[in-house]
Design a protein around this nucleic acid. Structure first.
Lengths: 275, 275
DNA sequence: CGCTGCGTTGACGGCTATCAAAGAACGTGG
DNA sequence: CCACGTTCTTTGATAGCCGTCAACGCAGCG
């Protein structure tokens, strides 16, 4: 390796598990130093609120470990999860004073936080950073609209199947899913049944019944409540009602690449892409 | 008026009905000239496809008049409208080769189009333009997630009421809604029942029944199939199940301003803001 | 004048929410 | 180590919202 670049003291970020996948990994060296300077690590226990709905949201950041949920709660208590945030995803809302959605810890989480004002300052002075954020937000928008399709015109069975396939496609990403060598493909749910229901626009009871029906059909097998073995991937794909998954049924390595330039951060997890 | 600025020949854009509300109205003079240079007007009849799903989408632009719908069609024919685009809204997808959603004319439309490559070139060389686009996309993302809440956990009655209130709040905007002086407040539907159903995640029959039930309850009155008089705005707001509309029931002028910096283009219409 | 598209109304059935309760897993305290 | 409360998941019974199928009135149009 050619190390003619001046080597500074290793920053705290060099050990960060998501460094290479997050926005930090895209930044050039001076920007990395600046990001490192203004960042601070915080942890939250499952169930804690990171940013309240309508709160003046002073921080943004990356998920280092664990899962965040973005949730809107209606006056009568009904809830909808509008996004799950996994390691390397960004949370928070830049350029607005409140977030419209609460950000809560769905599991115990470790977060790398920036003061929003300081981060926006960096954005304003760093063309590439802002451009990459724009690309991420555009992908997020596509993903949100895709989820509107799921909520608006798919059955619960289709939603559950779609959710499982998306998790499965995140193989070699955040450990949501894993393929043991030559073993059966498994999907590890990162969240509870309740969160799954709130994300898929249904109830825990219906989620449970739907999963059990998939078991009875021999499509999946329950290893433990949070781990499923996919017995018939093609049948699962057929259940999802999504033609676009057809191409992915056999080998994960056959998947096409994401459509936009690779190697930038993504703000929310389930964008349906296989980065 | 002080006219010390050199006055060039009036460009075709000076007569544009949406000039002051679109991205063009934000641009500085040289950028306006450049936008004008690369723009061209196209028209489509109701039902025509502007950009097909998954097509290599070579153009972006603004709606000048009429309404566009962004729609996803599933393999079995089910459809979901993921966004309506009204005059001054932008359509198309920058920085990606295909659009994932079709863009269709919901009515006869006039569009101001840019070659996507040329527009992206401008974006890359104009900091402010890209920043404004980022702000717009962020608002779009909020709006899309808000629509996920509507589709995921609201009844059809609530969805219809919400839709009508949002249209009503666009008073003094695209003429979707109008308040005749001292007369009853009216909402003019810009789209057909079918599109309304496809946007709200339900069917024409259910839309029709829901509207009729609102009439029987004395909340609205049907002037003609595309025009409603709002008889009891407070009851309509209560029906929407949305606490956030409570503040707006009496006088439209009491409404708070949009949360982010004003005066930038918005890419899709129903962002729930009252610009 | 028939055709077509749009909006409405009726009958019916199914998917899914709701209410209720039991089993399983887990941590806590005795 | 065990009792116990809490949370999570599952299962059952029931009801209701809403999708589906069908038909009708109406307006626009060739």
């Amino acid at each position: 390796m050619n190390l003619r670049i001046p080597v500074s003291a290793p920053s705290k970020c060099d050990l960060c598990a998501i460094h290479h996948r997050s926005i930090c990994g895209i930044a050039d060296t001076p920007l990395q130093a600046e990001l490192s300077r203004i960042s601070h690590i915080r942890t939250f226990s499952a169930g804690e609120t990171v940013l309240a709905e309508s709160e003046s949201a002073g921080i943004v950041g990356n998920v280092v470990s664990g899962v965040l949920r973005m949730v809107k709660t209606m006056a009568d208590g009904r809830q909808q999860i509008v996004g799950l945030l996994l390691p390397s995803d960004m949370f928070g809302r830049v350029f607005a004073d409140d977030s419209r959605f609460a950000v809560e810890a769905a599991t115990d989480v470790t977060l790398c936080c920036f003061e929003r004002a300081a981060f926006e300052h960096l954005l304003r002075h760093n063309r590439d950073l802002e451009h990459n954020i724009l690309l991420s937000v555009l992908d997020e928008l596509d993903a949100a609209r895709d989820w509107m399709v799921l909520l608006g015109c798919q059955t619960v069975l289709e939603r559950v199947a779609t959710f499982m396939i998306i998790l499965h496609r995140r193989v070699d990403n955040q450990g949501c899913s894993r393929v043991t060598d030559r073993g059966p493909p498994c999907v590890a749910l990162p969240i509870s049944r309740r969160d799954m229901a709130t994300y898929l626009g249904t109830t825990v009871e219906t989620i449970s019944r739907t999963i059990q029906s998939m078991v009875r059909k021999g499509v999946i097998r329950i290893v433990d409540p949070r781990t499923f073995e996919i017995v018939k991937l093609d049948a699962l794909i057929a259940m999802s009602g999504r033609e676009e998954f057809r191409d992915y049924d056999s080998d994960p390595r056959d998947r096409p690449q994401p459509r936009s330039e690779a190697g930038r951060p993504h703000l929310s997890v389930l964008t349906g892409k296989s980065r």
